[in-house]
Nucleic acid binder design. Structure first.
Lengths: 313, 313
DNA sequence: AGAAAACGATAGCTTTTATTTATTGAAATG
DNA sequence: CATTTCAATAAATAAAAGCTATCGTTTTCT
């Protein structure tokens, strides 16, 4: 039994297809087939049920895959241990970021980071929270930036900052005359929301549903971008909530329409998250320190109330 | 990097000698040397400091060895998972037993066990508690039978039975007239003890030291066997304490000299212990069930007070 | 139903890697 | 200073992992 064989097993388990798995492993299909057969022979069992299409794991195959993941991950970690000892910060690093954080945070730290750590090959992907968790679990991401807490057993969270919600109120709206707004004043039926799948949307729903047990509004205009929501609000279709960093980009006219919540402001907690296995911890630590550096000046709210990003269905 | 290379690294780390390590791995010394060099090259570091005699681990080498142990253990475990799935109970199984349990318990279960599980190749070693813990930690034992609780983070304990201490009182002694004895009556200075290193000795010292802060007696006659202690007691040199199972072997005349403690009797807790990694759990479970079967009739004390086997130095 | 495509297994061959025996060289021992 | 110990090196061999080409099913698409 070799580590190579185990990685082949994992590839087939993932793609349910020998040919595709072979490609991903950069070997030919016969090579992979034979190595899989070999480990099956050695163990005296079948890992895959080839009679089904697509290929299925056998019962014992499932257990072996779980264990194989362990072994392969731990062996990758040896290289990380060496890198860390050498003080080497480099190599491929795959980072996921949720859409509502991506456009504001990424430009703030990306430049500093790649300058400071030129040997790290950052691969950034915009993904929603659900996709991020899946990809962290199966090791397709090394870390991610998302709203927390996520209550996931296998994920570690390193809080980066707290980002308050800010209300965007068009001129004609009743709130326009208020300096600050109490979350309890919010009417969920008039809030313009991002489309389903965004945790920022879920956060706002959580914030509203606290008031009493109101269900999500009957009619919805849901968009994928805050820009759209702002324009819709300007058209008198309701109000909307923005994460603080987004408000920094507004033009002066629109900025006048912003209203802060009264303290403690509802806010989302934004964290760097990664599997507890802590692979590439040194790069994660580097990322955290760079982000903390650029963010410290821009965003330093403390008297906040953290709103869960999880949908409470 | 291969699992084989990692096992070679572990062998050298353990024996601090390439030639010996090669032997233990059943390969020649050049083979092992070259594979070690290969993994060192691949990682770009030195695992061993060959300038020192005997060979030393480098700082990074130490970390790699820790991680390598993980990987090698987890990979051994794949075979165990398969065995367990197949319901196969067999293969090599190394069991340690402490000296004060060995002669009484082993004959009770060994026959049943090897009949019931003929495919298990039991390798039994008499070792004291300290040696057992070391060997469990570095995987030279699969499990052991010892007095517990041991308060060891990495060891799991499965209680087999509670074995009361019984007092052996020669005829001329004052206790001879009593039916039961209170532990507080014991005078540590007149108790004949096993020689240092036995946890049964430590248990008795713990029992006595509870009374008040008496230190171990100034003079000592310490033997390695209960038979000696009994004869010394008969010579009027003091009294001694025996574990219950040992009293079953006494002849009728000696048996009359036994006195039970009053309830709750002080007792030692005897457990099957093994690393939390739970390698070969199926065999451990088989052992437990066989031992429980034979012991249930012979020894069923419940109203006991467990005395720690650990020396409180 | 029949042709085409998809997909894994097999065969034969090549390359790479692991291991062996024999030898060397350096350090420790006596 | 000779001897022993012990790891490294060299050269040869055995084992394995890999490749190309092909076959045999099964699925999919006319």
């Amino acid at each position: 039994m070799t580590i190579t064989q185990l990685t082949y097993v994992l590839a087939v388990a993932e793609h349910r297809n020998f040919t595709l798995a072979a490609e991903k492993c950069f070997v030919t299909q016969p090579t992979l087939s034979m190595q899989i057969q070999k480990i099956e022979d050695e163990l005296g069992i079948l890992i895959f049920d080839r009679s089904k299409k697509p290929i299925q794991l056998t019962e014992i195959g499932n257990k072996i895959v779980t264990q194989a993941k362990n072994i392969v991950n731990e062996s990758i970690r040896i290289k990380d241990i060496v890198d860390q000892q050498k003080g080497f910060i480099g190599g491929e690093f795959r980072l996921g970021i949720i859409p509502t954080i991506m456009p504001t945070l990424l430009p703030m730290f990306l430049n500093s980071f790649i300058k400071k750590y030129p040997k790290v090959n950052l691969i950034i992907e915009e993904l929603n929270t659900e996709e991020i968790l899946t990809k962290l679990h199966n090791n397709h991401l090394d870390a991610a930036i998302a709203a927390t807490p996520l209550e996931d057993e296998k994920i570690k969270e390193l809080v980066l900052y707290y980002e308050p919600f800010v209300v965007y109120v068009p001129e004609q709206h009743e709130f326009s005359s208020q300096k600050t707004i109490d979350p309890n004043q919010l009417d969920p039926n008039e809030i313009l929301l991002l489309r389903d799948g965004h945790c920022f949307r879920d956060g706002i729903l959580n914030l509203c549903q606290r008031r009493d047990n109101i269900h999500p509004p009957a009619f919805e205009i849901a968009s994928g971008s805050f820009e759209t929501l702002i324009k819709l609000a300007d058209e008198g279709l309701g109000i909307t909530l923005l994460p603080y960093l987004h408000t920094l980009d507004l033009n002066d006219k629109n900025r006048e329409k912003l209203r802060q919540f009264r303290d403690p402001k509802p806010a989302r907690e934004v964290s760097l998250i990664f599997p507890k296995s802590e692979l590439k911890l040194h790069i994660i630590e580097a990322l955290r320190s760079v982000i903390n550096g650029v963010v410290k000046g821009a965003i330093a709210f403390h008297d906040v109330e953290i709103i869960s990003p999880l949908s409470k269905k």
